[in-house]
Amino acid sequence: MKHTISVLVENEFGVLSRISGLFSGRGFNIESLSVAPTMETDLSRMTLVTRGDDRVLEQITKQLNKLISTIKVVDFTGGEYIERELALIKVSTDAESRAEALRIVDIFRAKVIDVTPKSYTIEITGAPAKINGILELLRPMGIKEVVRSGPVVIGRGAKGVVG
């Protein structure tokens, strides 16, 4: 089963490799990983998506917690949370397809952020499923490049996750 986990870590030298090394060393899989500093500059927040049964997930959270640099681990799966991913998509366009491309962009509430006679570069945010959706529709036109950030998540409601 897929799990989305937030890890609050000390924003220090080598911390990313501690986390990624833990996953590779113990044979846990990482589907995506995104990292950035938080409001507290000495903390970083990682969001990672992984897969495994309950036993594996229990080990993953325990092992993450065991790292000295880890402050907090939250597995959002099963709870109420909002998930967003950013994608930048470069799609080939010609006279025929340009209008159709714009229509798709409109429907998905995406944005065209760069234009050439032969291409559009599109920016879209949303749940990963929405991004998969637009990619599906744009695919026939010819996608030249896709960059996805990997999802980040935040819990619903008034309470925040802090260190």
Binding site: R55, E58, Q59, K62, Q63, N65, K66
Partner: peptide
């Protein structure tokens, strides 16, 4: 060490 518990056997 919590990671030792439940790692190999339930």
């Amino acid at each position: 060490d919590p990671t030792s518990i439940g790692k190999n056997v339930e």
